[in-house]
């Protein structure tokens, strides 16, 4: 059975590719294509390649940017890249290599790359979600692709998000001159949407701390969900998925404060991760 995947133009020479809630982008000039990630299964990766070929007939993938290490986005990045380049942040590459993938160009800091006739600015502003998560900026198309933020509240467990730096990273990226922010999951937004995503997480962080200060049993969903709903309803109750997700999100966040964060990513010195 073939997986369904939809390609939609989002800027000059750039398309989004969406499979359900998951999203990526690819860019083309002539027959050369640069794709981001590669989705999580061989079937979806195949559908992604097919969608690229259908959109850009006779195309050849010259590079894949693995923007994150998570399997549901980049499990097939190496296969999709084929003989082309596989670009990743050095930290992301460590995880990819542990799974048998073969990144060919490693970045340790922000980089400007000319690929397939397009200028890509690959930005790493610190830990946000996953390991070595790169923001993919196409300045000429005024477009940003970023995994982590959402236009809705459907964050679930905030998987592998690093709260020490998360919203700072998002707010810094919201200062870029872009018209569209394509998140790795959910609907496309603009920079105001990205700022609102940061506002939501910050508000949830404050509410979860207040819950602890107020003596709630912070490990109990029946206590945390109504508390967080009441605290955030007025500002964020319109976000899709708010009611079903805010409680588990509050439990996740309060444990960040209770435990002190998870690993070096959640400290003031995440650059120590780059040490051998």
């Amino acid at each position: 059975m073939s997986a369904a995947l939809e390609a939609t133009p989002v800027a000059d020479g750039v398309w989004t590719a969406a499979a359900g809630d998951y999203c990526s982008i690819f860019a083309s000039a002539g027959e050369e294509v640069v794709a981001v990630n590669g989705f999580g299964s061989p079937a979806l990766a195949g559908a992604y390649a097919e969608a690229i070929r259908a959109t850009v007939p006779g195309s050849r993938i010259v590079a894949v940017i693995a923007s994150i290490d998570h399997l549901d986005h980049s499990a097939q990045a190496s296969e999709l890249a084929g003989a082309g380049e596989l670009v990743a942040h050095e930290l992301c590459a460590r995880v990819l290599e542990s799974r048998g993938q073969r990144p060919t160009r490693l970045l340790a800091e922000d980089a400007e790359l000319e690929l397939a006739g397009h200028r890509f600015s690959l930005l790493y502003r610190g830990p946000s979600q996953g390991t070595g998560n790169l923001a993919v900026h196409l300045p000429e198309q005024r477009l940003l692709f970023l995994l982590g933020p959402r236009a809705d509240a459907r964050y679930g467990l905030f998987p592998d998000m690093h709260f020490r730096h998360l919203t700072r990273v998002w707010r810094e990226l919201a200062e870029l001159e872009v018209d569209a922010v394509v998140p790795g999951r959910g609907p496309t937004m603009d920079v105001d949407g990205l700022r609102r995503a940061a506002d939501y997480v910050d508000a949830l962080a404050e509410a979860s701390q207040r819950a602890f200060a107020d003596g709630l049993p912070i490990w109990v969903i029946e206590a945390m969900a109504p508390y967080a709903q009441e605290a955030l309803q007025d500002r964020f109750g319109d976000l899709d998925g708010f009611d079903r997700h805010v409680g588990i999100g509050a439990i996740r966040l309060v444990h960040y404060y209770l435990m002190g964060g998870w690993g070096l990513e959640d400290t003031a010195r995440p650059e120590l991760l780059l040490r051998d």
Binding site: G40, D69, H70, L71, D72, A75, L91, R94, V95, S98, R99, G130, T131, G156, L157, P159, D160, I221, I248, I251, W262, G263, E265, L273
Partner: peptide, 22 residues
């Protein structure tokens, strides 16, 4: 429910961080 949810996220994402890589 939370136990199962975390393992679902783990299986889907492949683990969280360098600690889960080897």
């Amino acid at each position: 429910g939370m136990n199962v949810m975390r393992y679902m996220a783990h299986h889907r994402t492949g683990g969280w961080g360098l600690e889960d890589a080897g």
